[in-house]
Nucleic acid binder design. Structure first.
Lengths: 216, 216
DNA sequence: CGCACCATCGGGGGAAACCCTGGTGTCGTC
DNA sequence: GACGACACCAGGGTTTCCCCCGATGGTGCG
């Protein structure tokens, strides 16, 4: 596995430069940002392998970044970085799709290790967090591949899920409508709702989203 | 395509060692097992590309292995291996998700070929089975995903394959054009050719087609 | 009852995708 | 040189997609 391309999001310049100094020799730092909008924009452009993400930031915090990037770029992995070890913070970002969570008292080499492991697909937690994270999701072993958690799928109504499945298979609206005995306009409505709820922008992303979660 | 990582499940040590001898020089044998529980456990751990699976085994048989592994690891492909050529056995494992079925009188080189082809996404059946497998599923074309064999991909010109890859990733025509320094009209041309050659009707089906063959 | 949510359907508009026809030029082969 | 395969581009038309707005019922809840 080659050097991970890492993007850094934190609102404190001091912290950013500290982290840079710790990890710059072993990863490719492809950029950093100190606010949500800029971060989202740059991450989408530069497609890093791993985003180091401060959880507490003005403008929605790391959660907002996660929510806006993940639907469009699910292959970008997030490692949350926070001074807090509050359960709600941890659970929040994990549900939003982060692949790990470490506190800022982590040591440089350990941070590096965490980045590498997230890059390779592992989920990484500070030891004292690991326990209750696993508790929160039931058994630990059920978690791993693809932490994503179907929090998002839960938001959909039954009808929307039904439409989603057909759309994801490549049906055009007309055929979905015929299959479900609906009008095309109704199908459009449902698809719009699904796209809005999953924060996707078109049905191509929807197909990918569905196939990544094996919903076929 | 690199050497497939193969796992072997059969309750007869003799058969296992025979198969090992036949194929060990050309694939990476990452393990074997002689009972269902152990097999499931090890397959989940080692994530082979292809599992050679005996259909008749104590403890539920190969079917049970399929049923327990596939939901967690859909990317693991199964090639069923059996002394039986009974229709019910064949249909059963195919429905459970196996990508192929060969009888044990298969010759070493043919077995090797079958493994490689399953690894590459093809579906493989002993010649005398192919007939009624097709019957059982209606028309041949209803069989896939992954049956039609990649004669289809061979039909495409290099440029068409290049366009295909980008389209399958969800690029819109304009972006494909920009990426390849073409006009949108040229991209349309190529896509049209691809759709016609693959007998698909829109780019969404194309995305699915590509992702089933993991061409990303 | 009011209210929120869901499912259904519609209009209109702009962008994108799809389809067909046809044109150019290059290359290799017969 | 003629022919075919391929890559490239264009015009013009139809369909599909996506988004905005709106409307009607049904259902469940405080």
């Amino acid at each position: 596995m080659s050097r991970p391309r890492v993007f850094l999001v934190d609102d404190h310049e001091l912290i950013r430069s500290g982290i840079r100094a710790e990890i710059a020799d072993h990863v490719d730092l492809v950029g950093d940002a100190d606010e949500v909008d800029v971060a989202v924009q740059m991450i989408l452009e530069r497609q890093p392998d791993v985003v180091l993400l401060d959880v507490h930031m003005p403008g929605g915090g790391g959660l907002e970044v996660l929510r806006r990037v993940t639907p469009a770029c699910p292959q970008v992995r997030f490692l949350a970085l926070s001074v807090s070890d509050a359960a709600s913070d941890v659970i929040g970002v994990i549900r939003a799709g982060a692949r790990g969570y470490v506190t800022k008292n982590i040591l440089g080499p350990d941070l590096l290790d965490a980045i590498v492991r997230v890059h390779e697909g592992d989920a990484v937690f500070s030891p004292r967090l690991a326990g209750f994270v696993l508790d929160a999701f039931g058994t630990g072993t059920a978690l791993p591949p693809g932490f994503g958690v179907d929090h998002e799928l839960d938001q959909l109504t039954p009808r929307e899920r039904q439409v989603l499945r057909l759309i994801a298979r490549g049906y055009i609206y007309r055929d979905v409508a015929h299959e479900l005995s609906l009008s095309v306009k109704t199908v459009e409505s449902h698809v719009s709702s699904v796209l809005r709820k999953l924060q996707l922008s078109n049905r191509h992303q929807l197909s990918n989203w569905a196939s990544e979660r094996h919903l076929l």
